[in-house]
């Protein structure tokens, strides 16, 4: 049943443009489940605030305070407006990356659509904030900034920022998931019988490195780069 759902990709055709749009149901369902989990975690950790904090409250306060300090020293006073957005982005990407450790669950960020959606989200937020803060004329003038000859170079650098931002997340997670799925098969094919105990030793190490460590680092890099992009465009 899981295989049938994983292989089925719902696709429909936009009539006039003849473009085929496809949706992966597994990714969408997993994303919704992660959103529900984040909501429950947030409700639980803020439910009974007291001066002697419980462990969940300590974790939530630590996360918020760390992002508050980091954003305030990099973006100034206006940085504090962005703490909810950046912290939520971080928690969402972190839980998406770490959800591949649960057996039979494919992490949503190993699907290219989620990563590009997050990249386009950061694009809209950063450019929208820059237009609202600087006004449309100053924002457009910034593209001609050092010399007007560099206009196309500036436009292309904005587009390539979005591409590299999303593809870094996608590539690390996709390759990690593929390696974790392929290594037991390869070990059994190469070592025929000794592959099974070698697999039992090697799999937790692989899962710890590619799943926990790289997943956490990639979530942090994604978030800090998003904050840096918002900062750079709005100067």
């Amino acid at each position: 049943m899981q295989d049938l759902v994983a292989l089925s990709v719902y696709s429909f055709n936009i009539p006039y443009l003849n473009i085929a749009v496809s949706i992966n149901p597994v990714t969408i369902i997993t994303t919704w489940i992660i959103m529900v989990v984040i909501f429950i975690l947030a409700k639980v950790s803020v439910s009974r605030l007291s001066m002697i904090p419980s462990r969940a409250q300590v974790a939530a306060e630590g996360l918020y305070a760390w992002f508050d300090e980091t954003l305030e020293e990099s973006m100034g006073k206006a940085g504090r407006e962005f703490v909810p957005f950046i912290a939520t982005l971080f928690v969402f990407v972190l839980l998406c990356n770490w959800s591949s450790l649960i057996p039979n669950v494919k992490s949503p960020t190993s699907d290219m659509n989620t990563c590009f959606a997050l990249g386009i989200l950061v694009l809209f937020v950063s450019h929208g904030y820059a237009i609202r803060k600087k006004g449309l004329k100053k924002y457009l003038k910034a593209y001609f900034e050092p010399t007007p000859i560099l206009f196309f170079s500036n436009v292309i650098s904005e587009i390539s920022k979005v591409l590299s931002h999303s593809l870094r997340l996608f590539g690390n997670l996709f390759a990690g998931g593929l390696l974790i799925a392929l290594v037991p098969i390869l070990l059994v094919q190469l070592f025929k019988w000794w592959g099974v105990p070698l697999g039992i030793i090697a799999m937790p190490l692989l899962n710890a490195f590619f799943g926990l460590f790289l997943g956490g680092v990639q979530a942090l890099v994604f978030t800090l780069l998003a904050a840096a992009y918002i900062n750079v465009i709005s100067e």
């Binding site: 593809l167 870094r168 690390n172 390759a175 680092v217 990639q218 942090l220």
Partner: peptide, 20 residues
Amino acid sequence: MILADAIAETTGVYSLIVAI
């Protein structure tokens, strides 16, 4: 250092995607 590592790894990951 870990942050800079993740950024320097990016082009290697691009070629990994193309190879896969």
